[in-house]
Each structure stands twice: as C-alpha cells, then as structure tokens.
Amino acid sequence: MTADKKTQCLEDMRMRILTQEIAPGSDLDEATLCERYAMSRTPMREILQRLGGEGYVDLTQNRGAKVASMDLPVLRTFFQTAPMIYANVARLAAENRRSDEIDGLKDIQDSFRRATQSGDAAKAALQNHRFHLAMGEMAHNPYLLPSLKRMLIDHTRLSQTFYRPASADESLRVVKACDHHDAMIVAIERQEPGLMVDLTIEHWNLSRDRLERFVSPDPLPIDVLPMKDRENAV
C-alpha cells in the first residue's frame, strides 16, 4: 500500500463527507470501503482512525465507524461557538499573517468566486472551507486551529444550503459573501484586526439564517382545510 494511495483515499473521503455524498450519521462499512478504494482492512482502519481524530468520523468500540452526526445538540453547540471562533481567528490572522501567505488566500478566493458564479454549491462550499482554513493557518495559533478545523467540517456540510439560492435575495447574499472575502483579504493585508472582526461577524450573520434552515426546513406543502370544514371531514 503506497502512501499516495492512502492519501488519495483520505482526501476523497473528506470531500465525500463535506459535500454530504456520505450523509451525517451514516455507517461506514469497512468491507465496502475496502472494495471501493481497493485496499485491505489494515490501511482502511488507519484512515478511519485519522478521520476520527480530525472529527469527520465517530469511532465506537465494537460498533464500527460512523460519519460525525449533525443532530440538534451538535448544531446548537455549533451556532453558539462559530461566531466566537471565527472572530478570534480573523483578528489573529490580521495581526500575525506573513506577507508570503496573502497570494495563496487570493488564489482560493478566485476559485471560490468562480464556483459561486457557476452555481456549483458543493465546490463553493469546499472553496469557502479552504478560505477560512487558510485564514486559520495565518492566525498562527496552535490552540484555535484544531477547533476551527472541527467547526469547518459542520459549517461546510451546512453551507450546501446557502450556496443553492432559491430567490433573488439569496443570490445577492452569495454575491455579498464573495465581496466579504475580498474585503477580508484587504484587511488582512493592511493588518486591521478590528475591521476583520467586524467583517467576520457581518459575514457570519449573512448566512446564519440560511444555515439554520438545515435544522428547521420549510414545511411540506399541504392543502389546508378551514377548521370548521375539517371538523366534518372523514
């Protein structure tokens, strides 16, 4: 088993989880995965252990592996925690960035904008993931970065909704999100931590209600009868 093959498998599984090709809470059958990726159980278990350590997978003794869930307690913690982590990462990125890190962030932003303009929700969510992860690396804080990485897993899975706009207003929000990224890059270049925090909170608020729709989706359409008519319905 080559290191490259294991790396490709690891990366592919990350992407499949982030795009929800493998749904939250899904069982991960070792035999099926081994067949798909043409590898034996030992390297596959190593990959699952790695994914478990990163927060993509939950490993339970004698019960195998599952994709990390997105149940209500998890999402409640996510919505409580995300603004705090993003704001602190943003401030530190502006304070601690190195000049040689800016071009990489700009390249990611170019890919992000192209993905949103093409309407590719999965790619847009992944490029947004890369953008905020790059900012986390620019913060150069070994305590915040692991928390950011774990949070981005759930944010990326949730944000599939945001990047599938269903109205003109929602489309404008996606455009605004792109503009926020551009403004963040400028603020980081100029090392303006206060502005970065303001932009980050505005950026979070722009998508928060759309992310919450993952938890509370629109009701299914039904033919509602007036209550007095319903009383006599069989």
Rank of each mutant, 00 (worst) to 15 (best):
V174Q: 03
E35A: 13
E11I: 07
S167C: 03
L72T: 08
R98D: 03
F79E: 04
M135I: 01
D120R: 09
Y56H: 01
Y163K: 03
R157E: 02
P165E: 01
V234C: 08
V186S: 12
M138C: 06
E231S: 05
R41M: 11
A87Y: 04
I188M: 10
Q127C: 13
I47V: 04
A134N: 03
T116I: 07
E231V: 10
H129D: 07
V89A: 06
L225W: 12
E46V: 05
M135P: 02
H203L: 09
L144R: 11
Q80T: 13
R98F: 11
P43D: 00
S111I: 06
R230C: 07
Y163P: 02
R14C: 08
G194T: 14
G25C: 00
A3P: 14
R190W: 05
S159D: 15
R114K: 11
R130A: 14
D209W: 01
E95K: 09
E137G: 05
M196Q: 03
A87Q: 07
L72N: 07
G104Q: 13
Q109I: 11
V234P: 07
G119N: 03
R190K: 10
I222C: 12
P219F: 12
L51G: 00
L33W: 08
T32S: 15
D107F: 11
I22G: 01
A187Q: 01
A233I: 02
N96K: 08
